[in-house]
Write a protein that binds this DNA or RNA. Sequence first.
DNA 1: TTCGGCATAATTGTTGACAATCCTGTTGCC
DNA 2: GGCAACAGGATTGTCAACAATTATGCCGAA
Lengths: 230, 230
Amino acid sequence: MTVVALKAQTAERVRGVAAMLEEEIVLGWLMPRERLIEEELAERLAVKRHVVREALAELERVGLVERVPNRGAFVKLLDPVEVRQIYLVREALETLAAEQISLSAPDELLLRLEEIQGAHSAAVASGDARAAFRANMAFHEALFAACGNPHLVELIQTMAQKVHGARSITAASAEHLSRARDEHFGMIEAIKAGDRDQLVALCRQHLGPSRDAYIAAVEPRFVRAKSTGA
Amino acid sequence: MTVVALKAQTAERVRGVAAMLEEEIVLGWLMPRERLIEEELAERLAVKRHVVREALAELERVGLVERVPNRGAFVKLLDPVEVRQIYLVREALETLAAEQISLSAPDELLLRLEEIQGAHSAAVASGDARAAFRANMAFHEALFAACGNPHLVELIQTMAQKVHGARSITAASAEHLSRARDEHFGMIEAIKAGDRDQLVALCRQHLGPSRDAYIAAVEPRFVRAKSTGA
DNA sequence: TTCGGCATAATTGTTGACAATCCTGTTGCC
DNA sequence: GGCAACAGGATTGTCAACAATTATGCCGAA
């Protein structure tokens, strides 16, 4: 318990910067098409340009930003077609995981989920979008980690990250947040009751709303853009 | 069609170096636990250290290499438990993809698959492990790309990469290579016949042998290592 | 006005030198 | 002989200057 966690090395700082930028994208602070200038970010986040550079590369791999050589990085605007494809895969992966969550000895899991959900509910009640986002991530990570296959969990997180750019629409919406809260409680109940079908069904339904909200918000623009020809 | 493809930028060179190292690992040139020294690789591959550095970071993300801060990178020795978990996920993903491959208008696909498989068969016949490996990758990429969901394809490739370190055992084995060749032809036939169940079954079976070979080869060592306590 | 070319500024890409860290073999002390 | 402290070398991590590229604004000519 020493307080000497100082001197983080580059790799960790890169993750930190990437996470920070990711949050700002999810919360709508950084909008699609917005330019991300290395030096500017470096100064704002109090790190060297080198670190920002790697963080941007990471976000590019994940699919949250786009980078063109010698021209820099932008927040990526997700194509609804892509979003649909990603959600299809997410559904398959999360269903697979939900089917493998052990329902026999879930005491520790339940405790942890309820604790996280407490934080989530509080964040929703107080309208703290950032805290809600973090608690939401933690909830899903804890839930799916219970499937026992870390590689599957990793894939689930990767795919979730990919559509984070599509979540600024729902991330601050009171309606969506409270719906998510209710569904989380439903999942906890399903685990308590040992009702696997219910759990799987809830996980699947849980994905729909934010996907649909994004597509409804963005599809018209895309159709227009394509018919306009640019 | 200008021949001016020169001046690749860092990002591409990184991919190149990573691919090179990956091949050397798969083919058993680089063995597990072997140290990967940045400067040494930089000289051998005629790139700057910086490029090697990023390539190693990438291979670490993928799971082929392990890196500890200030100590460098090693070829990762895969734990059989992990290998089993990864193959479980691979089975799910590849089944999912195989179920979505369109069997209605497969002419172009069949042509491409047969062309690639020609190369694969030739490589197997001549015992060229590297060419066989490349053709094998190309075959699976072309096959699964036909599922129409690029994000699913990406995931499949990611998971395949993860166990590349476990393939040095089968990558040069004539027995395994010819078995793979026969199974590839089987898949082509299944697509021709429009027999989806057969195609899915073949994809699933196709995964087993190399997994089992690795586990059989390595598990004893791991059991011993663990019971020995180190 | 509008267009093409040119100078300038803004930004990214690359490099090599330097600093920090860790392993190894050795010395000196108990 | 065994062990701790200590140099020396090998390797990785950090940085800031420099080079290369692209965008922008300006000017003059048709």
